[in-house]
Design a protein around this nucleic acid. Structure first.
Lengths: 217, 217
DNA sequence: CCGTTTGCATTGCAGTTGCAACGTAAACTG
DNA sequence: CAGTTTACGTTGCAACTGCAATGCAAACGG
């Protein structure tokens, strides 16, 4: 039986189990044995693929990141050929909000890792690059909208991008905390886009994110 | 010696130690013994004042909330008699951002508790009330600014309040993660206020929060 | 002045933790 | 077919965990 196993695949299997544990009971409940049990493998196997717990955590963090990226790319791809900046931004950001249970689970894990990395700065390096790229992209879209005359040109695209991404992150945090219902968050997101890009064309207004067919990533 | 002790004071002493541990090494490192050691008391004493660890955590969470509130009220009080809505909002929100090391430490603890409560919904009840109050207050200020003609009346105050608070929370999270420097966060906050309330009067622009004298709360 | 209550310190315990060590069986290499 | 490597499974261990139990001295109530 041995030797013919995909190393990366096993690691993802374990990381997935870790995320399930973390989503349900928090990162504090993540132990070698719990993860192993959740993945239905022996704890020896977990040790075989991750020499230390920290290695496992770091890998899981990268998986979380990639999941988010995959979500966004899929949602954006579903928009078809070059969508308007507004549609693009709204789709991206709404996709990153924990609006259904699947995304809530991911969100809880992400939030846990956020707290985790806040105390272990060394692990956070990868996140910085991603944030920087996202910010650059968002700023680009805002600039495009301004050039097309759709947006007020008084706002600095870079600052607006930082604010817009922060809105999304903050809404996500409050949603996870159950401070308000999803509609409130979506309303605030749309209001923010209105502020930045001017009122939306009526067809767009309040349109839901396209339905996502069930998948087992 | 016994009998003449202020119960509440001891509990705060312990909670403070807990927050120091959590700020440095995360909530996972918070154990009865660690907290006791940090507070320089016996672990028996900790058990005397908190019958279970959960009771201690819940109390610490309430202390975190109160600290934040105290910070804001102090900063706002320093503004003097009825300041403009814009000044008020900017002062409040900037005070809640982790811009110096003291507030970063508090922020790390708050973030850790956010992840903590996301998995234990029962504990989060108190937070909801506070958020709701804050939102109502912010919305009120925005309404006031609109009535005074300072702000564009096209934005819905309630939605704008949700977005504004989310901006602050999101900026805080990214700051704690070290994704960008404090100036970027402050820039985005000001940009957001510009969007909501119109450009700031020149005297206000970029003015720093009044210096906070060192204190041992 | 004596019992009760309060405020702590110490000890002990069962359970859990990360991790090292060892064992083993299957595939690949020569 | 011998030997090495890969892929695990099992066991064990020292450290740590929350918590119960016990002890004890000081203040207070009677």
């Amino acid at each position: 039986m041995p030797k013919r196993v995909d190393h990366q695949e096993r690691r993802k299997l374990i990381a997935d189990a870790l995320m399930r544990v973390a989503a349900e009971r928090g990162l504090e409940a993540v132990s070698l044995r719990h993860v192993a049990a959740e993945a239905e493998v022996s704890s020896g196997m977990v040790q075989h693929y991750f020499r230390t717990k920290d290695e496992m955590m770091t890998f899981a963090l990268s998986v979380v990141r990639e999941r988010g990226e995959a979500r966004v790319t899929r949602a954006v791809a579903a928009l078809g050929e070059d969508p308007s900046p507004r549609t693009l931004l709204r789709t991206m950001l709404a996709e990153l909000l924990p609006l259904d249970e699947a995304r809530r689970a991911d969100g809880r894990v992400a939030l846990a890792f956020l707290a985790y990395t806040a105390v272990r700065p060394a692990v956070a390096a990868g996140l910085h690059r991603e944030t920087a790229e996202l910010l650059a992209f968002i700023a680009g879209q805002i600039r495009a909208a301004q050039a097309a005359g759709a947006a007020e040109t008084r706002v600095d695209p870079d600052r607006a991008a930082v604010a817009l991404l922060a809105v999304m992150e903050g809404l996500g945090v409050y949603l996870l905390g159950g401070h308000y219902p999803p509609e409130t968050a979506l309303g605030a997101l749309d209001a923010q886009l209105d502020l930045l890009l001017g009122p939306a064309p009526p067809a767009q207004r309040g349109r839901a994110v396209p339905p996502r067919r069930p998948s087992k990533p």
